[in-house]
Amino acid sequence: MSNNRASFTPSRRKFLMTTASSAAGPVIARAFTGEARAQSAPRNQREPVGVRLEVNGHVQDLSLDVRTTLLDALREHLGLTGSKKGCDQGQCGACTVLVDGRRVLGCLTLAASVDGRSITTIEGLTSPGQELHPMQQAFVDQDAFQCGYCTSGQIMSAIGCVHEGHAENDADIREYMSGNLCRCAAYPNIVAAIKQAKAATQSRLASKET
């Protein structure tokens, strides 16, 4: 940050708080943990907020600063560092995860706003020693990365892209994968990987797997 932007921060912070609580409202109402909290008196904004996330099939109860993003909750509180911070402002896609099966930017999502929701991260696609998810295998086969930093986000986004039906042709894949930057520029290989894994990814969706 640069110091001359400080004058904007009080209002910006208030805005974030408001967004968080208004977004959390409807979610909490139908969340399996949120019943009591939804009815409580206005809370001290400095008090930690209890958040329950189902991450890769495991229920996780967290006590978080209300400002904590989903990305920081995963990385700093759950030790799931596969999702990466590349900009923290929704511009690079390195933090892409699936929330209830849809691709979401972890850095632009407050953890409290996805209370009770189901999160899938790169760590949820396979386990150590197990076979790779077809999309992961395709990224290896097609050499769809160099440094690997954007790769978790690319793979989660690629799975989302196939699930959405946006992987019908090369032009569509390029367009619907354009929210995920790859500075090493492995783009042609990413397109090839998605084409390779498309059918297998679709059939996993049909059998209710990610």
Binding site: L80, G82, T121, T126, Q137, F139, D143, G148, Y149, S152
Partner: peptide, 21 residues
């Protein structure tokens, strides 16, 4: 040859410096 670090990079197991616990 496929990259030696390929599996680590596609599974999120590769720990970059800010990932180190």
């Amino acid at each position: 040859e496929p990259r030696m670090d390929g599996r680590a990079k596609v599974t999120g197991e590769a720990r970059y410096p800010s990932d180190m616990p």
